[in-house]
Simulated assay, not measured.
Amino acid sequence: MELQRIGKIVHGLGISTIRYGLALNLLEIGRLKFEDYEVDNIRPLVTASPPLAWLIARLGEKKFAGLIGVTEIALGSLIAAKPIAPRVSAVGSLAAAGMFATTLSFLATTPEAWQETHGDPKLSITGQFLLKDIVLLGASLLAAADALQAAESR
C-alpha cells in the first residue's frame, strides 16, 4: 500500500514536470524565433518541407519564423493553463503533438538530417536534434491525457 501512495506522488510530480517543462520549452524556443540566428537555424528544415515551403515563399523567412514563434508561445501558454482551464490545456497539448509530428517529418524531408557518407545512413547533428521531438510528442500526449482527465473530473 505504501508503494502505491509513493507511486501516485511520483506520477503526479512526473506529469507536472512534463507539463511545465514542455510549456517552458515552447515559450523559450518560441521567443528565440524572433532572433535572426534562429531564422538561419530553421531555414534548412522548413525550406525542405513541401507543406511549409509555400508558406515561406508567401510570407518570407522572418515572418514565417515569427509565425512559428507566436504559435509556440501560444501553445506553451495553453499547456500551462491546466490548473485554471484543463480543456484549454488539452487543446494546446494536442496541437503541440501535431506540431511535433510535423517537425519529426523533417527527418524525411531534410537532406541534412542524414549522413550517408558513412556506409548505412546515420543521423547527422540535425537529425539527432530532430529525434528529440519524439519525446516532446509523447510529453504532449501525456499532458493532453492528464488535462482531459482533469476536465472530466470538474
Rank of each mutant, 00 (worst) to 15 (best):
T71R: 14
L137A: 10
A96S: 15
L141M: 08
G66P: 02
R19V: 10
D36K: 12
P50D: 09
F106K: 01
R31I: 02
L26T: 05
L24G: 14
A143E: 07
R58I: 02
A57D: 15
L137E: 03
D40L: 12
A143G: 02
L22S: 03
T17A: 15
T110E: 08
L130V: 06
G12T: 07
S49A: 15
R87I: 13
G66L: 03
E35H: 13
R31E: 01
K62C: 00
L22R: 05
D40I: 13
L94P: 05
V91K: 09
Q115S: 12
K62D: 05
T126L: 03
L104M: 13
V135I: 12
A95T: 07
P86V: 07
L52S: 12
A144L: 07
I9C: 03
E61M: 11
I56E: 09
L104P: 02
Q4N: 07
T110M: 07
L52N: 07
Q128G: 04
L104H: 01
P83E: 12
T110P: 04
V88D: 04
L75N: 01
L142V: 09
G21P: 02
L24S: 14
A57T: 14
G69S: 06
G92Y: 05
L78I: 12
E116D: 10
V91A: 11
L13N: 02
G14I: 10
L136A: 08
S49N: 13
V39Y: 00
M99R: 02
S93C: 11
Q128N: 06
M99D: 03
M99V: 06
S93R: 10
A81G: 11
T109M: 10
D133I: 04
E116H: 11
L3D: 06
A74L: 12
K82A: 14
P83L: 15
R87P: 14
G21A: 09
F100K: 01
G76A: 13
F34D: 02
K122S: 14
A48Y: 00
T47K: 11
G30T: 03
Q115P: 05
S93E: 02
L104W: 03
L142G: 02
I18A: 04
L26R: 06
G138Q: 01
A143S: 14
G76P: 08
I18E: 01
A96T: 13
Y20G: 10
I42N: 05
R43L: 11
L59C: 09
Q128A: 00
I68E: 06
I125K: 13
P44F: 00
T17D: 00
V46I: 15
K33Q: 06
A97I: 00
K63P: 00
K63C: 01
D120F: 10
L3E: 10
L130P: 01
T117W: 12
G60T: 01
L137T: 04
L107G: 01
T110L: 06
I84Y: 14
S16Q: 10
